[in-house]
């Protein structure tokens, strides 16, 4: 594992980023106390090791601006989704036109598709059922809504998260 980590400068960078992240998380967990750094150090090292083992650093790196773009997209859409389902549930006559559809994914395989499936599950009108091949099976609450446009918009927002390999 250590060998993998030090073969590339980018890997060192991602190790640094993750250490910062885990340290920040530890600091939040202990609510800003400063007397736990001994244990904190050990736990950051342990979780960093687990994270490097489970998710070896890749050449593609995250873009912080892109993450922010995706996050704001997600928040807005998710509030919209909540309202939509709330209105659907609360109106006197249920107005549903549910259907299961297979739609093509344009994102590259791997993490991006998982993020897509999970995001669609949390966004209005769609629920991911399975990823198979280059297709994503979705359950859709109302088939009269423009699902394809929403799918492409979500894919575009997700594509921002990663920087293209330089």
């Amino acid at each position: 594992m250590i060998k993998i980590v030090y073969t590339d400068l980018r890997h060192i960078r991602s190790v640094l980023w993750r250490s910062v992240l885990f340290t920040a998380l530890w600091w939040v967990l202990v609510e800003g106390r400063t007397d736990g750094w001994g244990m904190g150090g050990i736990s950051v090292i342990l979780s960093l090791a687990a994270s490097l083992y489970l998710m070896p650093p890749t050449k593609v790196s995250f873009s912080s601006l892109g993450c922010a773009v995706f996050f704001s997209f997600f928040l807005i859409q998710s509030v919209k989704g909540g309202f939509q389902v709330a209105i659907m549930a609360l109106r006197p006559r249920l107005k549903l036109a549910p259907v299961i559809m297979d739609l093509p994914i344009t994102l590259p395989p791997g993490m991006a598709r998982v993020v897509l499936a999970n995001t669609l599950s949390l966004l209005p009108g769609t629920l991911s059922v399975r990823i198979h091949g280059d297709q994503l099976r979705l359950h859709i609450l109302n088939r009269h809504l423009p699902i394809m446009q929403e799918l492409r918009a979500t894919e575009a927002a997700i594509a921002h998260i990663w920087k293209k390999t330089p």
Binding site: F22, L29, S43, V44, I131
Partner: peptide, 20 residues
């Protein structure tokens, strides 16, 4: 892939929380 990604993300956090 969806399940594996969850595990890859959550397990380091679980270790951190256990230490906490």
């Amino acid at each position: 892939p969806v399940l594996a990604t969850l595990a890859r993300l959550l397990v380091p956090l679980m270790i951190l929380t256990a230490c906490y």
